[in-house]
Write a protein that binds this DNA or RNA. Sequence first.
RNA 1: GGCCCGUUCGUCUAGGGGUCUAGGACAUCUCCCUUUCACGGAGGAAACACGGGUUCGAUUCCCGUACGGGCUACCA
Length: 513
Amino acid sequence: MEKVNRRIRTRFAPSPTGPLHIGGVRTALYSFLFAKKHGGNFILRIEDTDRNRFVPGAEEYIVESLNWCGIMPDESIIKGGFFAPYRQSERKEIYQRYAEQLIADGHAYYAFDTAEELEALRMKTEREKRVFSYDASVRMNLRNSLCLPPAETEKMLKENVPHVIRLKVPAGETITFTDLVRGEVSFNSDLVDDKVLIKSDGMPTYHLAHLADDIEMQITHAIRGEEWLPSAPAHILIYRFLNKENEMPQYAHLPLLLKPEGNGKLSKRDGDRLGFPVFPLQWKDPKSGEISMGYREQGYYPEAFINMLALLGWNPGTDQEIFTMEDLIRHFSFEHVHKSGARFDPEKAKWFNAQWLHRKPVNELAASLKNQVEKQGWFNAAFDERYFLKAAELLRPRVYFDHEMAESGKYLFCKPTGYDEKVITKKWREPLRSFFQVLADETLANIESFTAEQVEQTFKSLAEKHQQKTGDVMPLLRVFITGAGSGVDLFPMLELLGKTEVIERIRTAIIKI
RNA sequence: GGCCCGUUCGUCUAGGGGUCUAGGACAUCUCCCUUUCACGGAGGAAACACGGGUUCGAUUCCCGUACGGGCUACCA
């Protein structure tokens, strides 16, 4: 009610335990789109409360990935902001304060059970074919401030006996909330365990930390993966116990990204196995040195990557498929977020990239092509700006990726080094030698304006004069010029190469053949 | 196992009681364009998981079943 007029604030809160998975990027994207659509702020917060799982470089990776995608946080560890710091490890006192309030109000308690004790209990219940749950049914038989004499609790706290703080989940309640994607969802509190809020190392768990920060940072919409749905009731309870239910963000649980084939959610392994990236950027594991490929390094445009990701679980309700970030911002809404998991399709990802490639301004492609040609060492002074422009135009519809242009159009920059045997065997006959001789030395040599149209016309009339079918003689011409049986449109290519080069290549070919 | 969430062409999805002979896109197939391979264009094959209700009518609502997914840590 009062949140209706609050400024929209969303956050993406990954933990720096490794590279950001494309599922995570999608969560960030949706959070960003939603905030921007409503003129709000998008915040990047780092949830580094687990010291054991911290991976060096992961934080930088996250920042760089979002940056590459164009998902720009308004507040972050880099940018700062009114609610700084944005790294949870730097906000420890806040969580302590929340935990203490919960204890003071009787909604949380100290627990002294050791990891070993709990492990033993788990083993025991497992043998009885049940699952151990630290909850109302057993908590009074364990070692915590609820059942221990107050004096003993106090003594242990004073002596710094390792302990955690747990949420005291009431029994027999139905917890209901409205999810932006799924509608009304309800849980029985009997099945919610007494979640650890503060770990024995003094760090908060996700459950407390994300929630405290969402309150502190005035987050209005908490968008996260479906894997969080089962712990949502615990989170609702904490808001309630804190008397902050009216400040609780709206939760949206996104469907998961599934493997292209087989069962389960998309994982790092799938990428390696099926040969497509599952990470936006290349990642080198600092421990093993193992390298995982990234969309950026594979040659994907960030626009295409984002476009593809946005449509995996969301749709505009129309037939439009190609979206700029601005389009996405304009059209995004949770009503059109699908409820079930989406199987990732690497083929369609490529298609999206081709679509974006086909829409790029040619001069951009030309510049990139020039770069590739230089890198290959194929450059020479005859290739001016116009040349690259034309070449890019010819090459563009034949590739999925920008970086494929030079290689697939090598013959536009280098003379052929051999001739496709298949075409030669099929089409070459000795009498044709004189035809090509005349073509090179007379017909082409005499053309004053060497345009595609002119060349095509004179070539075809020469063929007719020699009683040759164009279908026989054109493939040969192509092979003589490019060395290959297929490639870009023949006559525009001849125009591009220019009279001298074309004549020279034909002469060379009929000598070598 | 328990709990929660889900289930429309192979894949991403539209639709949400009658307009559904279920629409689009990727992939696939055919044809057209073309010297070729693409691009582009035209067309084809291809789906409402199953069983019960509710209803005059169910792909759409309800309940079961099956299947899929997630969670079940002092990880997020």
